[in-house]
Amino acid sequence: MRVIDLSSSVDASGWEPNEVVHEVMSAVEGAEHMATRMRENWGVDFDPSVLPGGELLTLDTITLTTHTGTHVDAPSHYGTPAGGGTARHIDEMPLDWFLRPGMVLDLTGAPVGQIGADRLRREFDRIGRTPEPMDIVLLNTGADRLAGSPKYFTDFPGLDGPATELLLDLGVRVIGTDAFSLDAPFGYMIEAYRRTGDTAVLWPAHFAGRSREYCQIERLSNLDALPPTGFTVSCLPVKIRGAGAGWTRAAALIEDGTEGGAS
């Protein structure tokens, strides 16, 4: 079995609309930190200088949103459910949603803006089948090549409402994209609304989750390394209580003998 990494890095050196702060405590500082905490919390005195080189362990502290890097959006991220009540958080979602057969749709030629249902149907025809219920459908837009730059957040295509509904009608409950968002860029949607006055152009993919429970994987990468079908997606989200999203180390599992690369 081959394992193909589909995740983008959490990288404090790259450009992000919400700053990522990554602080590293050295092994020497880690020893001092441990000794201080042992004394303050448990009344235990320990001299870290007796450790080899005076070192213990390094410690990373990262400040970021749950939507930084490759992550899974939970229904609670989309807002109040249309029928009332409370949407499920990421820690409440069934794990078997996130270890399922995968399917990649090649949307690399799509311009910045919204992708319609007809474009998805053409991909189904090209591949030779439609998604099965509970398949994880991945959208290869090619946007991951811009990751780490401001254009990653402005230059990509997203799904419109009918395209999202099409996938949900087929029983898909997890949809992934290599773009910043499953919806079109903010600027595109707002300009379309100003031009048309139609609120349906505003965040249709996310807002679909208010009436039909599903999850999105955003900020994937390396989708062009996958065949259209014949692989399993693993995208188990980090269990953060009460959160609207959780980070994931997404990967594709391909049995030996399956050809890679989009057809």
Rank of each mutant, 00 (worst) to 15 (best):
I175T: 04
S8P: 00
Y188W: 15
A250M: 05
Q114D: 08
L120Y: 01
G30D: 12
L236S: 10
D5R: 12
D224W: 07
R145L: 03
T36L: 15
D11F: 04
R129Y: 00
A117W: 02
R119W: 01
T65D: 06
G43T: 07
E213A: 14
S211A: 15
G83T: 14
S211W: 04
E218P: 00
A147N: 08
V20H: 07
G148Y: 01
D144C: 05
L146M: 09
F46L: 07
K151I: 03
D256K: 07
P131W: 01
L95C: 04
E23Y: 12
G30R: 11
I217N: 01
W97N: 03
G43C: 09
E40G: 03
L168H: 05
E259H: 13
Y193T: 02
M103L: 11
R2Y: 06
G113D: 04
A12R: 05
G209A: 14
P17E: 14
M134W: 03
E16T: 09
M189S: 10
G171R: 04
R145C: 02
I190R: 15
Y152A: 03
G197M: 10
R37S: 06
P150F: 11
G244E: 02
H22D: 15
D47E: 15
P52D: 13
R249W: 08
D178S: 08
E16I: 00
L64D: 00
E29L: 10
L105T: 05
V3L: 15
A192Y: 10
V104N: 01
M189E: 11
L138Y: 03
S149P: 01
G54F: 11
L107E: 02
H67M: 09
G187S: 07
T66W: 05
W247Q: 14
I115R: 12
A87K: 01
V201M: 08
L139F: 00
I115E: 10
P150H: 12
L64W: 01
A27K: 15
A225W: 06
L51Y: 12
T36Q: 14
V104C: 02
G246R: 00
D178N: 09
A245H: 01
M34C: 12
F180Q: 05
L146F: 06
G230R: 04
D60V: 12
F207L: 13
A251Y: 04
K239Q: 12
P17R: 15
A192K: 13
